[in-house]
């Protein structure tokens, strides 16, 4: 691991630690509105100032970090597992099954997911608690975000299918399930890790976009997505640069994930 990667890993750990200890560190509940001080500048009471409704920005940032950084990896794990299962099976079995899987993948890549998500949200019951709504949003992302990874995994599995070591295993009487679990999957593990790490920032950004559309995390909960909505008023950012902190944190986390990624590929 290079010094840069170590630094990135340390930063990520620090952010995760802040996220876990957030409830102890925050000056106020993330939803409490201090209505006498909306849009306040940083002060000792509110180190990152307050938002338009007077809510403490640091509290919301820490709470939002927890929501985004816990659920985005969970969604990434789900989508990677689906991609691993479908991609490995398609690549390993080949033939008609591979064609069907790739056709379904292409079809789902071509679908207008934004409108489908809008429809799904409209069909959901309204009395869903906010936390359940958040979990549903990330679950949908996990269930719908596997397509690009499937193609990558399938191509890699196809390469392994005709390899000498697999031929040897097959000729030794190895059964298909054992072939997949003991020979194919370990050789694709580095690829699964890579897909997992790549998906995390992707889902964080997707959640940000969904929140902007009113589909993701609903008020009064906080997430990086709805914190980024404050940037609609660009002219106010110049006068209040501390409002850029959520964006800076998002950029740092995405960069750190990307920096950590190559080390995983090398070590596996």
């Amino acid at each position: 691991m290079s010094p840069l990667q170590k630094t990135a890993a340390v930063i990520l750990c620090a952010i995760f630690l802040l996220m876990v200890l957030g409830t102890i560190l925050v000056p106020a509940p993330h939803f409490h509105q201090f209505r006498d001080v909306p849009n306040a500048s940083p002060s000792t009471a509110h180190p990152l100032g307050t938002d338009a409704l007077g809510r403490d920005s640091l509290s919301r940032l820490l709470y939002g970090t927890r929501v985004s950084l816990l659920l985005a990896p969970a969604a990434a794990l789900l989508s990677t597992m689906i991609a691993a299962l479908l991609g490995s099976a398609a690549g390993f079995l080949g033939g008609r099954f591979e064609r069907i899987v790739l056709a379904v993948t292409d079809l789902s890549l071509a679908l207008p997911w934004l409108f489908l998500l809008l429809t799904v949200r409209a069909m959901l019951p309204l009395d869903v608690p906010p936390m359940v709504s958040v979990v549903i949003a990330f679950l949908m992302m996990g269930l719908l975000g596997w397509q690009a990874s499937v193609r990558v995994v399938c191509t890699a599995a196809r390469g392994i299918r005709d390899s000498d070591f697999l031929l040897l295993a097959r000729s030794s009487g190895c059964k298909p399930a054992r072939l997949v679990l003991c020979h194919v999957a370990p050789n694709l593990r580095s690829l699964f890790y890579a897909q997992f790490w790549i998906s995390i920032p992707l889902f964080i950004l997707t959640e940000a976009n969904l929140s902007i559309l009113g589909l993701g995390v609903m008020e009064p909960m906080a997430s990086w997505g709805n914190l980024l909505r404050g940037f609609e008023d660009f002219s106010a950012l110049g006068a209040n640069p501390w409002r850029l902190v959520p964006l800076i944190l998002l950029v740092i986390v995405v960069i750190c994930f990307q920096l950590v990624l190559p080390s995983q590929e090398v070590t596996q």
Binding site: F31, Q33, L53, L118, A122, L126, M218, E219, P220
Partner: peptide, 23 residues
């Protein structure tokens, strides 16, 4: 924003308001 503020106002009298935005 009004819904969010109403959430806090009504929480003072023990009422929980869930907000849902729809297209």
């Amino acid at each position: 924003q009004m819904v969010t503020m109403i959430q806090q106002d009504l929480s003072q009298i023990g009422i929980k308001v869930n907000m849902v935005t729809l297209d």
